[in-house]
């Protein structure tokens, strides 16, 4: 390895008095004194969330207002800290989306356990669970941190769906599954 000898110049007299350095430092701090703040007034101002952010996991509706989750429980199995607890339920025959057969009766995510890993979103075959922009979870009791189904849909809302696979499936069925 080549050795590069750096020449160390002795300090000049001005440098040894330390005064030019102090003046330089004072100039820098004065500049910052008049510069706008670098901070965010947090609760009033919120940070811009970058795309792909992994916030609180939520459940979403498809554009027609159908619950996308079919309670397959894959996310419950994959969740490393076992934060998800799903009670599957049947969709009654009278329902418009009865052909989907199942949806969760109850869906709970314990935000004290969740590690925001995003595996649930990754594994979901229905693209029903999404880690969205919500980043602050607060509460007074342990129970406050368990998001139930209603809360999860409130947080999730509706996301666009390019596939609408259940609608296609229904249409295909009605046409006798002819290809």
């Amino acid at each position: 390895m080549a050795v590069i000898t750096v020449e160390r110049k002795p300090l000049t007299f001005a440098e040894r008095t330390y005064l030019p350095q102090i003046a330089g430092g004072l100039k820098t701090t004065l500049k910052h004194f008049f510069a706008p703040n670098d901070t965010l007034e947090y609760p009033e101002q919120r940070p811009a969330i970058p795309p792909g952010y992994r916030g609180v996991p939520t459940l979403v509706y498809d554009p027609h207002g159908r619950e996308k989750c079919v309670s397959c429980q894959l996310c419950e199995f994959v969740c490393p800290p076992k934060a998800i607890r799903i009670t599957p339920g049947e969709i009654p025959a009278a329902d418009a989306s009865a052909h989907v057969e199942k949806r969760p009766q109850e869906f709970e995510i314990d935000m004290l356990r969740c590690i925001y890993c995003g595996l649930c979103q990754e594994v979901c075959p229905e693209e029903a669970i999404w880690l969205q922009n919500q980043y602050s979870t607060t509460g007074y009791t342990r129970a406050d941190f368990v998001n139930n189904k209603q809360k999860l849909y409130e947080l999730g809302g509706t996301l666009p769906d390019p596939h609408l696979k259940w609608d296609k499936k229904l249409a295909a069925e009605q046409h006798g599954n002819a290809h």
Binding site: H32, F33, E41
Partner: peptide, 10 residues
């Protein structure tokens, strides 16, 4: 206050 302004805080 002065320390805050110098450090870019309110």
């Amino acid at each position: 206050k002065i320390s805050a302004w110098i450090q870019g805080r309110p």
